[in-house]
Amino acid sequence: MVERANKPKPPTLAATPGLPPQPTVTFSDDNSRVTAVLPTGESVEVLLYGATVISWKDAAGDEKLWVSEAARLDGSKPVRGGIPLVFPVFGPPPSQAEHPQTAGLSQHGFARSSRWEFLGKSTSESLMGPGKGATDHGAVKLDFGLSSGSEGLDPQARAHWPFKFNLIYSVLLSRESLTTSIVATNDDDKPWDCHVLMHTYLRVKDINKVEITGLDKASYIDKVDGAKTKTEESGKLTITGETDRVYSPVDGPVCVVENGETTYSVTRDNLSNVVVWNPWADKAAGMGDFAPKDGYKNMLCIEPGSVSTWQSVEAGDAFEGAQTITIHQ
């Protein structure tokens, strides 16, 4: 699914002379983030801390992700907003008795609190094949790496998750979509378990006018109602209060509909769950890094992942999963 790209040599990766306009990839002055821009204007920005996507804009410059105004982007704590990557545990860690492998970790694991290495870029010609890439130049892929030997690995991981692993995380920007994918390889001599989730904060205009489709008849765990298992009876789910549900939908896209028009569709590859989350007013008020406090009206988390059960990865094997978010305009 994911190519392992070589490390780039120059700090700024420019287009090859003589070719039509190509996507550009640049680094911030402090080397804390990477930005890719298509010739048509679409862009994505990734913070190396957590390999967190913190911006995704269409050709008109309209932001598609919600990031809290109080989010820290200096590497001091995980980012509230964008697309944080959850691995190897989702939510608060279980007890030692429930799952000793992850009991000592912090909420949502260490992928979002480690500094990743930028491995390189691929552009349209290599992604789309001869001919097509040479004419539309409509995609760029950024690869990031984190392993048990990485200097940027959260110290907590070394102390509490002493397994050998290698993660490759890829962010693929095209004119109408954004794909994030992960390959988690077990380099140890024994199996380990993991959760994987892409905690995507989509920007919406008014949560009160949003409907979610693609979840009809799906079973879900309602974390707001004592983790009861329920079945979604509505073909169009609306958000009217604090919502925290882990769905196990059938194959097919989950769509966000605003004022009767589909604005996003989210498809999954080898990810069995979709978490739908919105903190609503009271919970947002109690989160120190959530701002503005009424920001819940302009965000909706649609989070593809595999978190309802543990994914057991045998020695030498790998778990792969991906999401694609498509913009409908």
Rank of each mutant, 00 (worst) to 15 (best):
166 N>D: 13
19 L>W: 01
96 Q>D: 11
192 W>G: 05
49 Y>H: 12
171 V>R: 02
182 I>K: 03
306 S>R: 00
110 F>K: 02
303 E>W: 01
98 E>N: 06
268 R>E: 07
87 F>L: 15
161 W>Q: 06
46 V>L: 08
115 R>M: 00
186 N>V: 08
220 Y>N: 07
182 I>W: 04
27 F>G: 01
63 E>R: 05
172 L>D: 14
253 P>C: 00
146 L>C: 06
76 S>F: 04
140 V>G: 03
21 P>V: 14
1 M>H: 08
272 S>N: 11
287 M>P: 06
135 T>V: 14
328 H>Q: 10
280 W>K: 02
11 P>N: 13
295 G>Y: 00
289 D>A: 12
164 K>M: 03
122 S>G: 07
223 K>S: 11
258 E>Q: 14
104 G>R: 04
322 A>K: 07
74 D>E: 10
320 E>D: 08
220 Y>E: 05
149 G>L: 10
219 S>F: 02
230 K>Q: 12
187 D>I: 05
85 L>P: 01
148 S>D: 15
141 K>E: 15
313 V>Q: 03
1 M>W: 07
38 L>P: 00
122 S>D: 12
304 P>K: 01
195 H>P: 01
325 I>V: 14
101 Q>H: 05
277 W>L: 11
64 K>C: 09
52 T>Q: 10
301 C>P: 03
111 A>M: 11
327 I>F: 10
105 L>A: 14
252 G>R: 07
241 G>K: 09
81 G>S: 12
61 G>A: 04
166 N>S: 14
289 D>H: 06
176 E>F: 00
176 E>Q: 14
243 T>A: 10
54 I>S: 04
181 S>K: 04
174 S>G: 11
37 V>Y: 00
210 V>M: 01
18 G>W: 02
91 G>T: 10
159 A>C: 01
297 K>D: 05
219 S>A: 08
165 F>G: 03
269 D>R: 09
224 V>M: 14
304 P>C: 01
64 K>F: 06
24 T>W: 00
90 F>H: 12
90 F>E: 10
119 L>A: 15
21 P>M: 12
155 P>M: 02
230 K>L: 15
295 G>L: 06
117 E>R: 15
202 L>D: 09
105 L>P: 04
60 A>H: 11
28 S>V: 03
134 A>F: 08
279 P>Y: 02
125 E>I: 13
140 V>E: 02
3 E>Y: 09
139 A>C: 12
32 S>H: 08
288 G>M: 06
234 S>K: 07
80 R>A: 05
